[in-house]
Design a binder for these strands. Structure first.
Lengths: 321, 321
DNA sequence: TCGATTACTGAAATCGTTTACAGCGCACTC
DNA sequence: GAGTGCGCTGTAAACGATTTCAGTAATCGA
């Protein structure tokens, strides 16, 4: 029998007599045959794969993102092709090129503000969803976290608890999310009429280690902060461990809060107060945008914002009474 | 100019005059051209992608595995195609089929002992590396963790600290790693002449929640355990938080130990004692095996064992004095 | 000046599918 | 009994690259 018939059997399409169907299926299992993905992609012009470009893979944040993406992608019959550690323009370029013809669309998380300019060239050539994009976000489908609002809310909560000197451990320079969270912190302070004190802002890089390191200079200050707000949970966790090592009690001596609400935040001791972000959903939404844009073709660009909620646990002293 | 020339330019091969090379490059950038992955794969019979099949994506363990795989894969010029939540035989079958012609080889982690039989059929048809495989491991290249030795060492340490009633929170049923760790626990007890007490063994499923839940029945026992050994860190963390909630002090009232040494173990309070596994290296090694087997063709199968080391922190009371 | 060599470029086959189109037998209708 | 339609199957042209082979122009040696 001919290849055409086999193809028809495999796609369960058109008119194939039950008996040929049988025969083909039998032979296929006997030979362990399964169709060749690349060949199919070539002619059908669809790969059933989604490209995912991430700056890094370390930590629960990215793990959750991938899990979210994979979850909806898999449900829609897509696989995901992962590529990480792309900060610079050239790396992103290379990754994008190497993915052409291998994926139907891409989810790109490139919080580095510099690197975003690269993306500009992409416009329209390819279905793209931007995760946490900055300036370029509105040139594509995009999803961003309510960074500013979330940070503002958390700092307001700390203020409401009576804290006057609130330190911030910021994220990497040139990182969009980090910048927005810092802005939220400043907004809240300004709104309550507190003069900004730049010695209270220490720069980190979103890693636990950097959170750990940030504590020492803060404790060395003449007028110590009574609360520390970290731009993400990993750094908050690092800070917690550093505070513990220096014999400070949390929240009695220093209150601590983070951002993201990674799964482990609630298992810390004391449990970590944080700004909850449904990280997995961030990934899910992103993955959901792609197939829809593939099917519907040109449609208005969607800009989604993922809302945040305050999760007050014991590390900042609990709810305001 | 012809497609052949363009191809030659792109692959930097053969004799192309510098000026044509120039012209082609210029036009390529002007048109934003980049070669079509599927088409290349079809003729070159190589995809520069590695398939990764995981049972789940939740938690730092898998995150680290992926990170390790991606790290060496990327260095070798490979991307990774991820597919998760494959427990049953049929799911694994489907995933394998859908990856044919899309990847050059696969890394499969299928700790479920049942599902392993599916893999048997794969033999030789495809470069495969098994992660934490059980019975089928020696039919493929494989890497396993020294589960038995690691668990045994940790339990011996607890015994050396004077603990007589050591509880174990086990992993999922039918899971290879979990079974081996439980076996190591039993070996250590037997070696020190302690009669096994099955009421001290609670089953979990590797999740934090299950670790949390496992604590209650243990505390309800007439003769409470003085130490709890969890089959992985996530469950140990869950247990820590449950113990804290019930007002138990760690390590004074109950010592706690885990397995895996996920990055956050040392940031817990108290810091979690655990059996260190270089999880990322597990992934790296796996990824390193594949390209080598692709290049060298038939070579003797390799069975690697990843060694473990004891990391004693404060959650079990520190080093034996 | 002519053949041989060299350096480059183009034509065409190939990879393994999908799919439009054509062909073929058979039943049905008038 | 011829024409029509239907149900099924095979032929062949794509898809977009790589690669072999052949062809052409320039250079060189004799």
């Amino acid at each position: 029998m001919s290849v055409a018939t086999v193809s028809r059997v495999w796609n369960e399409a058109a008119f194939v007599s039950p008996e040929t169907r049988q025969r083909v299926a039998a032979v296929a299992t006997r030979l362990g045959y399964s169709p060749h993905g690349a060949a199919r992609s070539l002619i059908t012009r669809t790969t059933h794969a989604l490209g995912v470009l991430l700056p890094d893979l370390y930590g629960e944040f990215f793990s959750e993102i991938i899990r979210g993406i994979d979850h909806t992608a898999q449900a829609a019959g897509y696989h995901i092709l992962v590529s990480s550690s792309h900060d610079s323009k050239d790396e992103i370029d290379a990754a994008l090129r190497s993915m052409r013809g291998r994926v139907d669309g891409m989810i790109i998380m490139s919080p580095d503000l510099e690197a975003q300019r690269t993306l500009h060239a992409l416009q329209g050539s390819f279905p793209v969803v931007l995760l946490n994009g900055g300036a370029e976000a509105n040139a594509f489908d995009s999803i961003t976290i309510e960074n500013h609002e979330g940070a503002r809310a958390m700092v307001r909560h700390l203020l409401a608890r009576g804290h006057k000197r609130i330190a911030m451990i910021g994220g990497p320079q040139r990182n969009y999310d980090a910048a927005e969270r810092l802005r939220g912190y400043r907004t809240a302070l300004m709104e309550s009429g507190i003069a900004p004190d730049e010695s209270l802002v220490v720069q980190g890089d979103f890693s636990e280690l950097s959170g750990h390191r940030a504590v020492k200079p803060l404790l060395a200050l003449e007028r110590r902060p009574t609360a520390i707000f970290a731009a993400n949970d990993s750094m908050a966790i690092g800070a917690l461990s550093a505070l513990h090592e220096s014999g400070m009690r949390v929240p009695e001596d220093v209150a601590v809060a983070g951002f993201d609400d990674i799964p482990l935040a609630r298992y810390m001791n004391p449990q970590l107060s944080t700004v909850h972000v449904d990280i997995a959903k961030l990934g899910e939404r992103a993955a959901a945008l792609l197939p829809s844009s593939l099917l519907q073709g040109a449609r208005p660009r969607q800009q989604l914002q993922l809302s945040t909620t305050l999760v007050i646990r014991s590390s900042c002293g609990g709810l305001v009474s």
